[in-house]
């Protein structure tokens, strides 16, 4: 029972990271109509930026700022590629998927060649922090607490932005019908760029939380997380924000529980196995596609 509670908490903190990533991913999906497979890779890149910053300064504010700024800049810099793509192909989601996979490969290759000689990076131990709760062998660390609390706060802010503010209404209007949105005077390109920027901002915050949760990162982390994020988003129904919230948390919990009871080297394989089984049973997702 103790293990169960502990793994549930672990799962919630891991799940809240997935939820953040799925939200950013889905925002770009519904507003800009692209599958940004490389989004988690950008977040991992920002983790590298955090790691680099930590060598020079211990100032938490500066590190978070660097992470956010780098993620926003890179994400917005990618936008013209997708805009050119939609001019050439129309809004073809499949082609955007192919392009974003190649962007992901590019980022991964840069990380594995140029950053830390391709070796995994480790964050300082005080970055992950001591455990705040002990359950026998399993502990709940400060990093996990940050991930959970930060995740909840970011998700709440995100939904506030989307459902309670003027800009959020504009995003939702554009996601529902971009032609009608332009007819009533919403600048489509500007709004799309803004969605990339907000996804980047979310990604920068996620990078810090993820770094505190994991305590390490490697070039291949992006691939693993990207597959989980896209899978969660498909399971939840592409573009379904609330579905993504539920499915992201569920994946985190399921993965942690599996990890608590099964041998370690298989943990990713187990997560993928679960994804695969659900995907084969429900190829169109659980809650319906909303794009």
């Amino acid at each position: 029972m103790e293990i169960f509670v502990a793994q549930l908490l672990n799962g919630l903190s891991l799940g809240s990271i997935y939820v953040l990533l799925v939200l950013g991913f889905n925002l770009m999906l519904v507003v800009a109509k692209i599958i940004q497979f490389a989004y988690p890779h950008l977040v991992v890149l920002s983790m590298y930026v955090c790691w680099g910053m930590l060598k020079y300064t211990n100032n938490m504010f500066l590190v978070v700022l660097a992470s956010i700024v780098s993620c926003v800049i890179v994400n917005v810099a990618i936008e013209p590629i997708f805009r050119a793509l939609s001019k050439k192909h129309g809004l073809d989601i499949n082609v955007s998927f192919v392009v974003s996979i190649s962007i992901a490969l590019l980022i991964t290759d840069v990380m594995s060649h140029a950053l830390n000689y391709g070796f995994p990076i480790a964050f300082p131990t005080d970055w992950v922090g001591k455990s705040v709760l002990n359950f026998g062998l399993i502990t709940f660390s400060v990093g996990q607490a940050y991930a959970l609390i930060g995740g909840i706060a970011a998700v709440a802010l995100f939904f506030y932005l989307l459902y309670r503010t003027r800009q959020g209404r504009v995003f939702r209007a554009l996601s529902e019908n971009s032609v009608l949105a332009s007819i009533i005077g919403i600048p489509v390109v500007k709004t799309r760029i803004l969605s990339y920027a907000i996804a980047g901002l979310l990604g920068g915050v996620t990078a810090v939380l993820f770094a505190r949760l994991l305590g390490s990162a490697s070039p291949s982390l992006g691939d693993f997380v990207a597959m989980k994020v896209v899978a969660v988003s498909i399971l939840a129904g592409l573009g379904n924000l609330k579905g993504g919230l539920v499915c992201g948390l569920l994946l985190g919990i399921a993965e942690s529980l599996a990890m608590g009871y099964l041998p370690g080297s298989w943990s990713n394989a187990i997560a993928f196995m679960m994804i695969l089984i659900i995907m084969l049973i429900k190829p169109e997702g659980l809650f319906g596609i909303q794009i």
Binding site: F97, V230, W266, M279, L280, P283, E284
Partner: peptide, 24 residues
């Protein structure tokens, strides 16, 4: 299951099987 599934589902099925097989 995925004979007529949308493109992105087929992609994810392919990638997950690859990683599972690699781990195995």
């Amino acid at each position: 299951a995925i004979g007529d599934a949308p493109c992105f589902t087929v992609v994810i099925v392919g990638l997950t099987v690859l990683f599972i097989m690699k781990t195995a």
